[in-house]
Each structure stands twice: as C-alpha cells, then as structure tokens.
Simulated assay, not measured.
Amino acid sequence: MQNADFVLPEAPPEHAVIARFHLGGGDLGVSDQWSLVFAAERSARAAVSSSGVGEVDGNEFGGGEVAIFAYGPDAKALYRVMEPHLRALPFRPAHVVLRYGEPAEDVASEHIDL
C-alpha cells in the first residue's frame, strides 16, 4: 500500500471590515459613548454570527476615535450584515474600510463614508 500525498487547498485570504468613528470628550471618549459602541458591537456580533459570514473581533478606543474590527472570507457580505448596526451609531465623521485580503500595502480595499 502506498502513502498518498494529500494537498490541502489553501485557506482563502481573510478579509476585514474596519469601522472608525470620531468620538468627543478626549482621547478615549466618554462612558455614554462606550455604552453605545458596546451595544452596537454586541448586536453586530450576534447578526454576523447567526449569518455565518465571519466574526466581529472587538474594538479599540484611542486618539479620539473608536474602531470596530470584523473578519471573514468576504468583506462585502460581512459589511452588508454589519451595516445597519454601524449606521445606528451617532458618531460622525465615520467611515468603514473593506479590506479584500490579508494586511499588506498592495491589498485591495474600499472606503465607505457613513
């Protein structure tokens, strides 16, 4: 009996949705803003999880803004599920970057103003 070599297909590159919102009240915003961000993040996480398009990975506060990060195999599909939850946040200016692949200087991306 011969050992067969199996070649596993490469995993598709991971796409990203990165939403950034300007906050008032200093470097980290204020607690009322945090509550709204956490609620939007929870609702987006539930919607993304139930749709099976990826995962909402978390947030990062600093520099007077907050960023919400999500990853999956199709940035457009991920954004379609997240969009109503992101648009519900009142902080502006705001934008979303859809990244079509792993982080690199030459990776395709799309900028969407909210």
Results as ranks from 00 to 15, higher is better:
1 M>W: 02
2 Q>N: 14
4 A>G: 09
5 D>H: 15
7 V>A: 07
7 V>I: 11
8 L>C: 03
9 P>W: 05
10 E>S: 14
12 P>W: 08
13 P>S: 11
17 V>C: 01
20 R>C: 03
22 H>S: 01
25 G>A: 13
26 G>V: 11
27 D>Q: 13
28 L>V: 10
29 G>E: 00
29 G>K: 00
30 V>L: 10
32 D>I: 02
32 D>K: 04
33 Q>G: 08
39 A>M: 04
40 A>M: 07
40 A>D: 02
41 E>A: 04
41 E>D: 09
44 A>V: 04
46 A>D: 11
46 A>Y: 09
46 A>S: 09
48 V>P: 04
48 V>S: 00
48 V>H: 02
48 V>Q: 02
48 V>I: 05
49 S>G: 05
53 V>R: 03
53 V>S: 08
54 G>K: 03
57 D>Q: 12
59 N>G: 12
60 E>H: 13
60 E>S: 11
63 G>P: 05
63 G>I: 09
64 G>W: 15
64 G>T: 15
67 A>S: 12
68 I>D: 00
69 F>W: 15
69 F>P: 13
69 F>T: 14
70 A>L: 13
71 Y>A: 12
74 D>T: 11
75 A>M: 00
77 A>Q: 02
77 A>C: 03
78 L>D: 08
79 Y>W: 11
80 R>N: 13
81 V>S: 01
83 E>S: 10
83 E>Y: 02
85 H>V: 06
86 L>I: 07
87 R>Y: 06
88 A>F: 00
88 A>G: 04
89 L>G: 01
91 F>G: 04
91 F>Y: 15
93 P>L: 00
94 A>V: 11
94 A>C: 15
96 V>G: 06
96 V>Q: 05
97 V>M: 14
98 L>C: 10
100 Y>P: 08
101 G>K: 07
103 P>S: 04
107 V>M: 07
108 A>Q: 15
109 S>L: 12
113 D>E: 07
113 D>M: 00
114 L>F: 15
